[in-house]
Design a protein around this nucleic acid. Structure first.
Length: 904
RNA sequence: GGGCGCAUAGCUCAGUUGGCCAGAGCAUCCGGCUUACAACCGGAAGGUCGCAGGUUCGAGCCCUGCUGCGCCCACCA
């Protein structure tokens, strides 16, 4: 992509039936006085007359300070304000991704948020009122972690609230001050409020046309109420349930983790070959990378067809060191060519162990605690004196240390065969954690998402097909994810800063919670905090007392809240009038990495709660790669913050770079493109200044004045451009819309402006008027075509000669531009440009100034006639004394240029 | 192991149902203060379209296989 100064002779581009909406009736929009207050309507806009127009063109246009100037003006004028009196079909609603404010902004945000803004601005100019809210994701672990580090505190729920608490003046990360949950949450809110201001400042600077009166935070009251309400309804409908089950567990954060939050990382480890014993037989050797779990072993397993172990099935063997009797089982998942072909099943080494445990109905023998350490008491079966003694050496140790000690024990007992063999293998991690996950049995809340239910899964697959995806192949990721689900959605987290489950449990006479009989609040009471509020019918004194109650201590997964972003932003159950106007939304823009989380979970919630898709369309942005083509991420330390780039190249330049990246395509951080964007912005300033100063305030904008074929040709080419750009935007292909517009614009500057310059200065003739009118019409259309991409510079040049904001002006209609072209042939401009270029080339090769006179130009070929129509303009622009045009059969245009004799 | 995507000039990328010598910008080189723009303008050079087959009158584009890169998924003893 990029400007083209060398477009081929124009072929008339054909219209695409259906791709471009029918033009609205009414006066041509290039006649439009721009920017009625809001929601432009062609029918109410009167043609501008010469009397009410004055040009305010600066002598030296510049990009400096342009952002600050227009950000303020837009804020005051409210151009981006959502008009909630409009009906659904007049509204375009966007389910904006709430950025995690506790993270730092990086250039990738600027990239993908620009993509959304392009759509918002286009739709607004099409006459829609755009619902474009901004949310802040200040929920969850990243915020907790940041608050801990920033203030030097840690949450201790057992501490009472201290209303006068203030954090240490100088945080000491090694000695974090314990604070109550409520104090901790207050600090979270304080810090995120500051972070939000920084984000909003950058977004405004980038030119996002967000309606800043519609913001929400995923931790605010409305979001918490929505998350709790949706949960209670899931519970009532049987879509949410509690279960005690083996759970993937992060020992650092001490919380359960959902399938969607896993990632594999390569870790080094070692195979340990270990002997199990049986009476009157050879030892059975297994290989394991986790010898510390031998005490947790409940069985060995081999494939049913594996003849090596066929005679062992149904018998038992004794574990080394602990001497625990475990059965040998057959299961199809055991793979004969892995290790020795027979594996030990533990409580629980990995997810496969869970499968075997469940399907083979094995006992449990848990030894790893929530803190990732070997628990104090040995599990059932580890009973003998010697076994308990050995176990005591492991108790309290981390799994890492326990492994080393276990190897010593095995060596001492002679059950370790050879040395450990180093290996690397993928290990499951929580995506935000840095220790491998353990599998621990815990009580958790789940939402049915099709992971264990074919009917729900099929329904969600159908939703995926109903949704329009841009680019289309992203749907495949969704389908694979849904098809591959193996459990329901685990939504509870054992953390503090998040939306609490709105649930209490009665305590029986012994003080044990009755989990199967939870106490639920009224919806009208939401949001509630069960750890500080008592349920109806109880007083706070009875908390924790036998016969009293306790609150559910857990909070919801962050996705349990953000999966409701369309409902939260749209006013679900809070502002039903608004909700009916914006939901289901038109667009969900987001990154490809969170299809399995955010996109999927949002589809699940809307399906369960609203029985519909949450939006019609999704637009998936690609990654930003650093110049070495590596994915930019915080962990890689290669992130680039946007502010510096915004200042160096201008916001429009950054947007230009972002707009040149297609949806779904990874894009390199390319300062070259930003430079090009800056150059384009400056060119728009200068070309606009020139066209306005040449045309003068008195020039007519009535297309009837456009009489010269060259002018009509230019407008016809412009009409083609508008048609292409419009079709591209309708197809969410902003890159193409930009490329078409930009290409036309550079040809307009390089060729058309040069060709008509002299004629346009001729104040008296009709031919001069034709050029001046064409310039104004083209300028008006071009400024609007660029407006979504380069909102600052477009607004700046628009303000020189129009009233109101270009962003409230009507998107140009191809049909109306075409009408102004009055049957013009784009080939005339193409041919004239080609001749002009040939003249320039001759001068360049002769090392002459472009001002040099040319003695004669002879043009031959099929298009010589078309070029000849613009003879006068070519002669003036090329400074040619004589011109001849000889139409012939040759398809190629042949241009002979005779330079003056004796180039002095 | 399965899947998705990508591979075109030194770099970043266009190339829309297959159709005349494959395009642009950046970088490079040459030239020019041409009164909109010297942070500018004009011009030039630069490519066996990843490799190998196939279909076709014709393939960057369609089919098959292969290679390399990125990402996703997978029960990874």
């Amino acid at each position: 992509m990029g400007p083209s100064c060398h477009g081929r002779p124009g072929r008339a581009r054909r219209g695409r039936p259906g791709a471009v909406p029918d033009p609205a009736p009414g006066p041509a929009p290039y006649l439009a006085k721009g920017g009625s207050e809001q929601a432009p309507d062609a029918n109410t806009i009167a043609p501008m007359t010469n009397r009410d127009r004055s040009f305010r063109v600066p002598d030296k246009p510049s990009l400096d300070g342009i952002e600050a100037k227009w950000v303020d003006v837009w804020d005051e004028s409210g151009v981006y304000r959502f008009d909630r009196t409009k009906t659904r079909d007049e509204i375009y609603s966007i389910d904006t991704p709430p950025p995690t404010v506790s993270g730092s902004l990086h250039i990738g945000h600027a990239f993908s948020y620009t993509h959304t803004d392009l759509v918002a601005r286009y739709q607004r100019m099409r006459g829609k009122t755009v619902f474009y809210p901004m949310g802040w994701d200040d929920n969850g672990l990243p915020t907790e972690r940041r608050v801990q580090n920033y203030y030097g505190v840690r949450c201790d729920p057992s501490i009472p609230y201290d209303p006068d608490f203030s954090p240490p003046a100088k945080p000491d990360p090694k000695r974090q001050v314990p604070v109550s949950r409520r104090n901790f949450i207050e600090l979270c809110e304080r810090l995120t409020a500051e972070d939000e201001k920084v984000f909003e400042g950058v977004w405004r600077r980038l030119g996002l046309s967000v309606d800043w009166s519609h913001t929400y935070a995923t931790i605010d009251d409305g979001s918490r109420a929505a998350a709790q309400r949706a949960f209670l309804r899931n519970l009532k409908r049987g879509e949410a349930y509690m279960a005690e089950a083996p759970t993937l567990w992060d020992v650092t954060f001490r919380t359960a983790v959902a399938q969607a939050e896993l990632e594999d990382r390569e870790r080094t480890g070692a195979y340990h070959k270990i002997a199990f014993h049986r009476d009157g037989g050879e030892p059975v050797h297994i290989e394991t990378t986790r010898p510390e779990l031998i005490a947790a072993c409940v069985a060995l397993v081999a494939h049913p067809d594996d003849e090596r172990y066929a005679d062992l099935f149904g018998s038992t063997v004794r574990s080394p060191v602990f001497g625990v009797e475990v059965p040998v089982k057959a299961h199809r998942l055991a793979e004969p060519d892995k290790g020795t072909g027979i594996a030990m099943i533990c409580t629980f080494g990995d997810i496969t162990d869970v499968t075997w445990w469940r399907e083979l109905q094995l006992p449990t023998r848990p030894i790893v605690g929530w803190d990732g350490r070997i628990i104090a008491d040995p599990p059932p079966g580890v009973d003998s004196e010697a076994a308990r003694e050995a176990y005591a050496k492991l108790a309290g140790a981390t799994v890492h240390t326990a492994r080393e000690r276990m190897v010593e024990l095995l060596r001492a007992s002679g059950d370790m065969v050879g040395d450990p063999v180093p290996t690397t293998r993928p290990v499951k991690f929580y995506e935000k954690g840095d220790k491998p996950l353990e599998v621990v049995t815990t009580r958790q809340w789940y939402i049915r998402n099709g992971g264990r239910d074919a009917e729900i899964r099929d329904r969600l697959l159908a939703r995926g097909r109903e949704l329009q995806w841009h680019p289309g192949h992203m749907r495949t990721r969704y389908e694979h994810w849904v098809e591959g689900l193996n459990s329901d959605w685990l939504i509870s987290r054992q953390r503090f800063f998040g939306v609490p489950f709105p649930v209490w449990y009665p305590l029986d006479e012994a003080g044990n919670p009755r989990y199967d009989d939870p106490i639920l609040p009224e919806e009208s009471a939401l949001p509630i905090d069960p750890s500080s509020q008592a349920p109806a019918g109880y007083t706070e004194e009875r908390r924790g007392e036998p016969g009293g109650f306790i609150g559910d201590p857990d909070v919801m997964d962050t996705w349990a809240t953000s999966s409701l972003s369309p409902q939260i932003a749209g006013g679900w159950e809070r502002d039903e009038d608004l909700f009916s106007r914006v939901f289901p939304m038109d667009l969900r823009p987001q990154g490809q990495d969170i299809i399995r989380t955010w996109l999927f979970s949002t589809v699940v919630r809307a399906d369960l709660e609203n029985g519909t898709l949450p939006w019609r369309t999704t637009a998936i942005s690609g990654w930003i790669l650093d110049p070495d083509r590596k994915k930019m991420s915080k962990s890689k330390g290669n992130v680039v913050t946007p502010l510096d780039l915004l200042e160096r190249y201008s916001s429009d330049a950054i947007r230009y770079w972002a707009a040149s990246g297609r949806l779904g395509t990874d894009t390199a951080l390319d300062e070259g493109q930003m430079k090009v964007g800056r150059r384009l912005s400056i060119k728009i300033l200068n070309a606009s200044k020139f066209a306005l100063s040449v045309a003068g305030e008195n020039a007519s904008e009535d297309p009837a004045a456009v009489t010269r074929p060259l002018d009509r040709a230019m407008l016809a080419a412009l009409a083609d451009t508008v048609e292409d750009a419009t079709a591209a935007f309708e197809a969410y292909d902003h890159t193409r819309a930009l490329e078409r517009t930009e290409r036309f614009f550079w040809e307009f500057c390089d060729d058309y402006l040069e060709l008509v310059k002299a004629r346009a200065y001729d104040a008296d003739s009709a031919d001069g008027a034709s050029a001046r009118t064409s310039l104004l019409i083209a300028l008006s259309v071009l400024q609007r075509l660029f407006a979504p991409f380069l909102p600052f510079v477009a607004e700046e040049v628009w303000s020189w000669w129009r009233e109101g904001s270009v962003h409230a002006a009507r998107w140009p209609e191809a049909a109306e531009v075409r009408a102004a072209a009055q049957g013009g042939d784009p080939g005339v401009l193409a041919a004239a440009s080609e001749v002009l270029r040939a003249v320039r080339k001759a001068k360049s090769e002769a090392k002459l100034s472009m001002r040099a006179e040319v003695a004669a130009v002879v043009v031959r070929g099929k298009n010589a006639g078309a070029a000849g129509v613009a003879e006068g303009d070519i002669a003036a622009a090329g400074r040619a004394a004589s011109l001849e045009f000889h139409p012939g059969d040759e398809t190629e245009l042949a241009v002979e240029v005779t330079l003056p004799e004796a180039a002095e």
